[in-house]
């Protein structure tokens, strides 16, 4: 094994549990999350020469992982569309706090949901987020705040109307 790959392993290793949480939040199950991380690891290994060390590694890594998650989502697009349709139709009330949070997150725009998943599951700093999402740091701050407010409003609405009869 060459030095660059060993360096890659020691750098990515500590990020793996957070990466798993992010991929799991994006894809909804462990198997797909592992597949996305595996793909991302291979892609990152191949593109290691293109990595600019002056930029945060976590942001670079999560940008690759995010693309791999998107690829998996695209591959199963039809199935996901069916599942979302079923969830929308079921109108089931939240079972517990985690369920309520998941339902509220699912109701956010993709951009808001993704920035929250990267911030919390990926434990990304604003610099990491800017690199992973390819947006300016100022936009990170405003988008993250807007996402939190939108989520808080959804949760408050769900608490007022737990049966989801809106």
């Amino acid at each position: 094994m060459d030095d660059s790959r060993r360096h890659f392993e020691t750098t990515v290793g500590p990020l793996l549990p957070r990466s798993a949480a992010f991929a799991h939040a994006q894809l909804g199950n462990r198997q797909d999350a592992e597949d996305a991380i595996q793909d991302a690891a291979l892609r990152a290994c191949q593109r290691l020469g293109a990595y600019d060390p002056s930029r945060p590694f976590a942001g670079w890594w999560f940008a690759i992982l995010r693309n791999c998650c998107h690829d998996i989502l695209r591959r199963r697009q039809r199935m996901v569309a069916c599942e979302l349709h079923e969830v929308a139709q079921s109108d089931r009330p939240p079972l517990d706090e985690r369920d309520a949070l998941e339902q509220a997150l699912a109701g956010l725009s993709a951009a808001h949901r993704e920035i929250l998943q990267l911030r919390y599951c990926g434990d990304c700093s604003y610099r990491d987020l800017a690199l992973a999402l390819d947006i300016p740091e100022g936009t990170v701050m405003s988008r993250l705040h807007a996402a939190r407010r939108a989520l808080a409003e959804r949760l408050a609405a769900a608490e007022r109307d737990p049966g989801g009869t809106r």
């Binding site: 793996l16 549990p17 990466s19 799991h24 999350a33 991380i37 929250l116 599951c121």
Partner: peptide
């Protein structure tokens, strides 16, 4: 609440870095 949820999702994935 989001931090607690994120922590509960963490696991150690099995990956192989061989080409």
């Amino acid at each position: 609440r989001l931090l607690d949820d994120a922590r509960s999702r963490q696991f150690q994935p099995r990956i192989a870095l061989a080409d």
